[in-house]
Design a protein around this nucleic acid. Structure first.
Lengths: 217, 217
DNA sequence: TATATTAGACAGTACAACTATCCATTTTCC
DNA sequence: GGAAAATGGATAGTTGTACTGTCTAATATA
């Protein structure tokens, strides 16, 4: 198919597809002439993936590219793929450190303690460690006494969540598809999980403090 | 204190503080003269809050303002506050619908089924409902057969997470502080919870597929 | 009183994510 | 076979967000 059909099928404007091609998010089509290239199902799928990551999940185009790149390159090593994919976080920090001299593994003593307490086997390089420490630091700077022990019950729940995640992955055999699902479930499920938490919070709030007589905004 | 001291204590540039004042994220100081205003501890705290929400959590300045506004206005009604605060989601959709004619409550049949199955009491207006449905729709458009029943185990875990959240809130009595904590715990904990999930995923992945012989990126 | 600060207004910058225009080709349809 | 439409690739322009810098009149400070 040509670019217009790709655009029609995906709902993504022609110009935007070209932009993704330029940015390397979408691999170029097979050139058949100077002004002609062929795209296939894989391109369409990739395009949908891009829109899911940038739209629903809110990843930046640059982040989406890293994830997608890792996904296609390391489709053999799911474990490594997840390691790479997990490095993606919103705009915030993470990158500026690299320019300072502290390589990839910053110190995250609290996450380390937590990982240890849970008996988890997790790479020192996993950036999620820093995310945990940064959150704790921020909460404390705002006067909320949270430390890694406070997070233990949450870690327990995270462990069960991860088990469900991996359970689902086991139903897939094709390594190519498995890699893709790993990424999709990890990233795309995040907004849903947070949404579930909010729904549960409202329910719990209603249950504890009488929920009958309040105007809802 | 004057603006420079506020800047020094918070680490936020002078010009940026003025920007937040302009945007209404930070309430104006008490004017003592045409070119002089006094700021206090509350301003400093608010400023730290702003940076936490926009930095760690990655909220846009506009979203942070809604959250902060809701927090200060509805400090009496925690329940309502959470309802408002929960409406915040990354750039994506949510707002465009309003201009189309579909008011606040879009249809989210799957979330409704899930809420029902869990026996939860949740407002029809809670935007988290849409988030759930949107995620499910996206996953299915990518060929992953997920529906609300698949999310049930996650909902169960979300319920326990919410219980921990509310447990922590009960330790606070001052309604003003309670409102602030509700917001902080809901929003600022999100990155940490997702980070915990990723750590747990890596651990689970290592446990299932031998985790000895892989190079970590 | 000279020098530094300040509030407030406004213009300018940097970056991300598109969007539009051009042009030299192919295609396609008649 | 030839005119109209579409295409790939390059480049320029737009929009929105989050600042950052400059200016001015008015204090504050030494």
């Amino acid at each position: 198919m040509r670019i217009s059909e790709l655009s029609r099928l995906s709902g993504v404007p022609n110009a935007t597809i070209k932009y993704y091609l330029r940015e390397g998010l979408l691999p170029p089509g097979r050139s058949t002439a100077a002004t002609q290239a062929e795209y296939d199902e894989a391109h369409l799928r990739r395009l949908r993936l891009i829109r899911a990551l940038t739209g629903v999940r809110g990843l930046s185009v640059a982040s989406a590219r890293s994830v997608l790149d890792a996904m296609t390159e390391h489709r053999t090593d799911l474990h490594q793929l997840l390691g790479i994919a997990f490095g993606i976080r919103p705009p915030e920090s993470g990158t500026p450190d690299a320019a300072e001299g502290r390589p990839p593994a910053g110190s995250a003593p609290e996450a380390a303690a937590l990982v240890d307490a849970m008996g988890w086997s997790v790479s020192e390089q996993n950036p999620a460690r820093q995310a945990v420490d940064e959150t704790l630091r921020t909460l404390r700077s705002l006067g909320i006494a949270y430390d890694w022990e406070t997070l233990l019950p949450y870690a327990e729940l995270a462990e069960r969540t991860a088990r469900h995640d991996l359970d689902h992955l086991e139903t897939v055999t094709d390594p190519l598809e498995k890699a893709e699902r790993a990424v999709l479930l990890t990233f795309l499920l995040e907004p849903a999980l947070m949404a579930l938490r909010r729904l549960a919070q409202e329910n719990e709030s209603t249950a504890r403090h009488g929920g009958g007589e309040h105007t809802q905004a």
